[in-house]
Every structure is written in structure tokens, then in C-alpha cells.
Design a binder for these strands. Structure first.
Lengths: 189, 189
DNA sequence: CATAAAACCGACCATGCGGTCAAGAGTGTT
DNA sequence: AACACTCTTGACCGCATGGTCGGTTTTATG
């Protein structure tokens, strides 16, 4: 029988995923070309198409991997209450700014059947966060619980837009501030 | 002397701006074609190029108009304290979801010299918000003041991502909730 | 060591895009 | 009425893009 897939197949694929994610995030998914992503990864465009069927399939793999890891992190941290959750999420975004940005502004460009499993991951995150909020404020109506939950995600998801590493508060310092802010804010609604 | 510009020139231009903004926001600026935007507006592509020099010039006009109006609204509301500011901004986003979305994910695609005046508008908004926060908490260090200010913008800018008109809290009800949340949160940092 | 498939590439293709153009229809000015 | 200019269009152009193809090199397996 002939040779099977290479031993380092998964690592190579992971390298393409990471390199392409950085390139896509830097230029915007739609403007970023496969030729450019290939150059960034130091391979030919044809090779990317050896590992992935299409540009969309590559994006899907980037987002699916990212969201799966995020769900795992959050699942692990959900025992530590709301502040623990907030710190865990902000910490997980470290070294994943590119993937996070792509999730926010490129996920919607995928066809619905590819979006579905990714959206399912997102819903899982939202549910865990909502449970943590509800633990502090079991009296909130469903509508208000959802609104508060999304408020917290707004805070977290906006972070990468204004924070520049090395300037202002550190990631960890902001995580503390955000946790305090949310906990106090919860008492006011 | 020959005829001048048509009397309804500005209205026509405004119509294109509004129609194109909706189309761009729905499909994403980069994927959205000028042909498609033209069809959405019920005119030919060539006509858009009669009113605008380029796709970028059209985007610039959309964002510049939107941000100018926003600055005007915020400038007027800054006397009413932080809660007033929050309510004013959320209310101003009404009927401007498309423009708001474009501001968040297409502004960066403009060349630096076109971005500059728009970013100046944004900075104005941030400054006003920071002043309102500082009025409540004059003891915050500059770094923390900035972090809290961006936290508030995160809450506001995320709203359009999860809110669906007619479902859950109304816009006004959420504005009240957000104002309460922020005011209480401010006491916790 | 033979072999068959994987790994990899340069060149190529079809399509859709932003933008242009030449021309006609409509209209305020003289 | 004659003019000059705006308004409006369908047809067109060059180019970059996502994706393909034929071929070469490499490497697990028998």
C-alpha cells in the first residue's frame, strides 16, 4: 500500500491556520487574497488548496478551532463565578486577537450551513455567561438577563478594538477592572 | 450662462448615501458591489459615479455624515450627565444601524488621509464621554479613565449586534438599563 | 528497491469587480 | 429658440481574484 498522510500533517495545517488568520485579520477577510495568505505562510497558493477545499473552508477551520478552545476555557472557568469567567475570557483572547477579530466580522460571510456549528458554539458561551449572571441576580426577567449578558460580551468583545499591548492598562489589569465594573453594575439594574 | 446644479441635487445624493449604506451594511462593504448598490438605489452604476468619484468617496460621505450628526447629538446631550449621554447615543443609532455598522468595520479600509477626519470625529465623541465619566469619578487615573470610557463604548457599540427590533427589551428600555448599569459599575472601579 | 500516493509548485483560466466612455434626454439661462 | 451644461444610461475595459491543472519531488509502505 502507498504512503498515508504525513506525520506532521496536522502541524502544517495548524501553521496555515495561524498564518492565514493573522493575514486575514490584518487585511480584512474579504480584501485578503489567498495568494497573499500563501506568501505570508511561505507556501504556494496551490498548497493551501491541497489542505483546504476553499477560502471559506479555511476560514471555517480557523473559527471552529478558535471557538472550540474558547468554549473549553469557559467551561473550565465557569465554576469561579462571573469575575473568574471575565478574566478567563480576556486571558484566552491573548494571542488570539486575529481569530477573535475574524469571528466578529467575517463569520457572517459564511454560508448558513457553515455558520450553524459556529453559532452553536457562540450560543454555548452566551448560555454559560447568562448562567453566571443569573447566579448573582436570579431575580432578573429573561429579557433583562439577556440584555445584561450581552452587555458583558460587549465589554469583552470591544477590548481588542481599543487596547494596544504595552500602552495603558495591561490585559490582566483591565480584566480586574472589568470584573469589578460588571459586578458593581449588576447591582444597579 | 448655462444651467447649474439641479435643485434636488442634495436630496438625490442623500438618497444614494442612504441606499448605499443599507446595501453596504447588509452585504459587507468589501463584498458589496457598486452595481448592486446602484440597483438597490434604482439607478445605474454610472450615475453613482456622477455623484461620487469612487466607492471610497461614497463610503467617506456616508461615515462623515453619520459621525457629524452623532457629534452634534452628543454635544447637545453632554449637559445631562452620563446617563443622558448614553440614552442620547443609543437613540441616535436608531435608523442608523447601517451607518453605525459601516463605521465599525469599514472605516479601517479607507486610506489614512480619508480616515483622519473621521477619526477626529470619533476622538471628539470619546473625549466627551471621558469628561462625563470623569465628572462622576474625578479620582480615576488617566489609564483607568480611558479604560472605563472604552468599556462604556463597548456596551453601546455592541448593542446593534444582538438587539433585534421587536424582540426583547426596547431600545429605550435598554438605554435605561445600560445607564443604570454604567452608573453602578462606575462605583465599583 | 519499486511504487503509488502525498506534498508541493508555476502557470493558467473564468469571473466579477471598480471604473470609464460616448451618447442621449432633460432643463435652467440668455 | 438656441445653448450649454447636468442628468442618466448601457456597453465596455483592465485587472485582481478564487480556484484549477499538469507536472515534479518526496516519502511511507510492500
Amino acid at each position: 500500500m502507498p504512503r498515508g498522510i504525513a506525520r506532521d500533517h496536522d502541524e502544517k495545517r495548524g501553521g496555515l491556520r495561524k498564518g492565514a488568520a493573522a493575514y486575514f485579520a490584518r487585511h480584512g477577510y474579504d480584501r485578503a487574497s489567498m495568494t497573499g495568505a500563501a506568501r505570508e505562510c511561505g507556501v504556494s497558493k496551490a498548497l493551501i488548496y491541497h489542505y483546504y477545499d476553499s477560502k471559506e473552508a479555511l476560514l471555517f477551520d480557523i473559527l471552529d478551532t478558535h471557538l472550540s478552545e474558547l468554549v473549553a476555557v469557559v467551561d473550565e472557568a465557569k465554576g469561579n463565578g462571573l469575575p473568574g469567567l471575565i478574566r478567563a475570557i480576556l486571558s484566552a483572547y491573548e494571542d488570539a486577537d486575529a481569530e477573535h477579530k475574524l469571528q466578529l466580522d467575517a463569520l457572517a460571510t459564511l454560508p448558513p450551513e457553515m455558520q450553524a456549528p459556529l453559532v452553536a458554539h457562540q450560543r454555548r458561551l452566551v448560555t454559560i455567561m447568562a448562567d453566571a449572571v443569573a447566579a448573582d441576580r436570579p431575580d432578573l426577567s429573561p429579557d433583562r438577563l439577556r440584555a445584561v449578558t450581552m452587555t458583558v460580551f460587549g465589554i469583552l468583545n470591544w477590548f481588542y478594538m481599543w487596547h494596544r499591548p504595552g500602552r495603558g492598562l495591561s490585559r490582566a489589569a483591565y480584566a480586574d477592572l472589568a470584573a469589578d465594573f460588571v459586578q458593581a453594575g449588576l447591582k444597579g439594574v
